[in-house]
């Protein structure tokens, strides 16, 4: 399992990835790295390119430009390891029974773990002889997850995995997923726009916005380099003495100001400082598209340090 600042092997490396559809660029110049064994949240507003990025990683789409490597090899090649992809709409053959869906996994994946897949289905009381078309959204997701986990992937890509689940199923399936990660050291990359879903689950974050990477790195590291400052308003805007710290977002209400900054030196002054929560950090970046992007050293690919702002670890 990964360590706080552990760099180690790369599960994913994106070098200047770009994707253009007829309506224009959806991803542009995306470069970041995800170390192996991490559980990473992929966050961004709708249309930020999350699904496109995951599809490229799953070898469903070919990027227009740039390069992606999965465990050091091209996606889809033998050396890239096993990758499971759970697409957003959880596509399954509707006329297959649940047992037949698992049989599909068995027939198409060498090293398939039938018992593990059956356990996930059984834990949700989903009947094996039911047709997929007759299942509820939660049951469908469970079967799709069983199919994704039955091959014990090295890299698990999940696109909005829990969006159609009730809280109980959500907790159960997240548990099953994290247990798999704990047991097999699986690297997980999951997109979501429910930020609360990420708390306690992710130890790595990638924020996409406007087709580019805004924020990438270890959660603890990202939180530690940001400071939430709350104080009494002085004049029209923020206190002048705060101005030399890179600012992510500031809000002023009545006599009070709140600012998320990325201080180079300790930001001491007549105000209170606190470290932000993951949700506060993400919201601040999502709300301010003009804030400078931040890719921490463990999330940088080689040669990237020259053109991206770095922080001292």
């Amino acid at each position: 399992m990964g360590d706080g600042m552990y760099a180690g092997e790369s599960a994913l490396e994106a070098h200047g990835l770009g994707m253009r559809y007829r309506r224009g660029w959806v991803l542009k110049d995306c470069s970041f790295r995800l170390p192996a064994g991490r559980i990473c949240g992929l966050v961004g507003p709708n249309g930020a390119g999350k699904t496109t990025l995951l599809s490229i990683m799953a070898h469903v789409l070919e990027p227009t430009e740039g390069r992606l490597s999965v465990f050091g090899a091209a996606p889809g090649s033998v050396d890239s390891g096993r990758t499971s992809f759970l697409a957003q709409d959880k596509p399954l053959f509707r006329r297959f029974t649940v047992a037949e869906i698992l049989r599909l996994g068995q027939e198409l994946n060498p090293g398939w773990d039938q018992r593990a897949a059956e356990d996930i289905v059984r834990a949700g009381n989903v009947p094996f002889d039911a047709k997929v078309g007759s299942l509820s959204g939660g049951q469908r997701t469970r079967v799709a997850l069983a199919l994704a986990l039955g091959k014990h992937p090295d890299l698990l890509l999940l696109d909005e995995p829990m969006s159609d689940l009730d809280p109980v199923a959500r907790q159960e399936l997240m548990g099953a997923l994290l247990a798999e990660a704990a047991e097999h050291g699986t690297t997980v990359l999951m997109s979501t726009h429910v930020l609360a879903e990420l708390e306690n689950v992710c130890d790595y974050l990638v924020v996409l916005s406007g087709g580019g990477v805004r924020l990438a790195g270890d959660v603890d590291e990202l939180l530690s380099v940001h400071t939430m400052v709350t104080g009494t308003k002085d004049g029209e805007g923020l206190p002048v003495s705060l101005a030399h710290h890179p600012l992510v977002e500031s809000r002023i209400s009545g006599r009070q100001f709140t600012a998320l900054i990325r201080p180079d030196s300790p930001a001491t002054g007549p105000w209170e400082t606190d470290s932000p929560s993951m949700e506060e950090l993400l919201l601040a970046y999502l709300r301010s598209p003009d804030a400078p992007s931040l890719i921490t050293p463990t999330a940088q690919v080689q040669d990237q340090a020259y053109n991206t702002r770095t922080v001292a670890a």
């Binding site: 596509p91 399954l92 509707r94």
Partner: peptide, 13 residues
């Protein structure tokens, strides 16, 4: 209906 994505992301080419 998206099942192409399902098949191409299994281990068979």
């Amino acid at each position: 209906n998206g099942t192409a994505k399902l098949v191409v992301t299994q281990s068979a080419s």
